[in-house]
Simulated assay, not measured.
Amino acid sequence: MWIIVAALVGGVALLSYNDVSTDVTSDDAIYAERILRETEHGNLIAQKTPQSFAGQIETIFAVQDAVLSIADENRGIPFDRPRELSDLYQARAGLCFDRSRAIEKILSSLGFSVRHAFVASTRGTGSPLRSFLTPKTQSHAVTEVKTDRGWLVIDSNRRWIGLTEGSKPVDLAALRETKAQQDWDPRVKDPMSPMLSEPFTYLFGLYSRHGRFYPPYMPVPDVDWGQIRYNLTD
Rank of each mutant, 00 (worst) to 15 (best):
E144T: 05
W160T: 00
F118I: 03
M218T: 15
L129S: 04
R92H: 11
F79T: 14
T178R: 02
P128S: 08
N231T: 07
T201G: 03
L152M: 13
T39W: 08
D190A: 06
D222H: 04
S100Q: 05
L129K: 08
I70C: 09
P169K: 03
F53D: 03
Y207K: 00
L95H: 03
S139A: 10
T25Q: 14
L44P: 01
D222C: 07
I57W: 01
V170L: 12
V220D: 02
D190S: 03
V5A: 08
V9A: 15
A46L: 08
Q90E: 13
P221Q: 10
L110E: 11
S21H: 00
R115N: 06
N74F: 10
A32K: 00
S113I: 14
S193Q: 04
Y230L: 07
K136M: 10
V223C: 12
A174W: 04
V142D: 01
L152R: 06
E58C: 10
I103N: 01
P216D: 07
F204Q: 05
S127D: 13
M195C: 07
P194K: 10
P199W: 11
Y214S: 09
G124M: 07
I103H: 00
S69R: 06
G150Q: 11
K168I: 11
A93M: 12
L110D: 06
I45N: 09
T49Q: 15
S208Y: 02
E38L: 09
L232F: 15
Q182V: 11
D185N: 15
I30N: 01
R209Y: 09
Y202G: 00
S197T: 15
Q138T: 12
G162V: 05
S108N: 14
T59P: 07
K146Q: 14
D234E: 09
C96W: 04
M218V: 15
Y17Q: 15
S21L: 05
K189W: 00
A91K: 09
D222S: 03
T22M: 13
D185R: 07
K146M: 15
S208G: 04
S21D: 08
T137R: 07
S156P: 01
W2V: 10
Y207S: 02
P194A: 10
N18I: 09
I30K: 02
F204S: 08
P215C: 05
L232P: 02
L85D: 09
S113L: 14
I60R: 03
G162R: 02
N18F: 09
M192L: 15
S197F: 11
K179P: 00
Y89L: 14
I60P: 03
E198P: 05
G205P: 06
K105Q: 15
Y217V: 07
G55T: 05
L88K: 00
